[in-house]
């Protein structure tokens, strides 16, 4: 009786090990389904998800116009202080002063890509781009100005 159990244990133990080995062997010989992506070899056809939060950008149209009113909603919403709005006063044709954006400064090095600024923006002026290769040699290059030089606000955009 004792001997029978002894050999049964050995049989079961060997079988359990072989089951695992069989599975490993199966994947060793059937390598059709390769899931590993080899970066950076696949850089050219690497497709990231559309919503991937890589960095904050401000889209400009063909006339170099954006929809940012300089209301500072994104600056208030940011938990890390990575957005700084420098506003100016435009003189409208009627001779009135109107608040407008001068520089939208974005500190990429402070940003945690939480997306709260995009959520807070009332005019959808900023959005998240799905780029991710942000390394630069000089850290000052990470401080970006989002509104392009000479750009202005699109007509009809109000807060």
């Amino acid at each position: 009786m004792f001997l029978k159990e002894y050999f049964l244990d050995i049989y079961k133990a060997t079988k359990s090990l072989l089951t695992g080995m069989k599975l490993t062997g199966y994947y060793f010989t059937h390598h059709k389904e390769i899931l590993t992506e080899e970066y950076p070899e696949n850089r050219k056809n690497l497709q990231l998800a559309e919503r991937f939060r890589g960095e904050v950008i401000m889209p400009h149209d063909a006339n170099n116009e954006h929809t940012c009113t300089g209301c500072s909603s994104c600056e208030i919403a940011c938990p890390n202080g990575s957005i700084k709005i420098i506003s100016k006063f435009d003189i409208t044709p009627e001779g009135k002063k109107k608040k407008a954006i001068d520089q939208h400064i974005y500190h990429l090095e402070l940003c945690t890509m939480c997306g709260l600024c995009v959520e807070a923006c009332p005019t959808d002026a900023i959005k998240m781009a799905n780029t991710f290769e942000h390394s630069v040699f000089n850290r000052n290059h990470l401080i970006k100005r989002l509104n392009k030089p000479g750009s202005k606000i699109r007509e009809g955009i109000e807060e």
């Binding site: 998800a49 919503r51 991937f52 890509m113």
Partner: peptide, 15 residues
């Protein structure tokens, strides 16, 4: 992670 990335925009720290 891919499902999360597609809907939430991040793979680990979704917010």
């Amino acid at each position: 992670n891919e499902i999360m990335e597609e809907t939430c925009g991040a793979r680990l720290t979704m917010n």
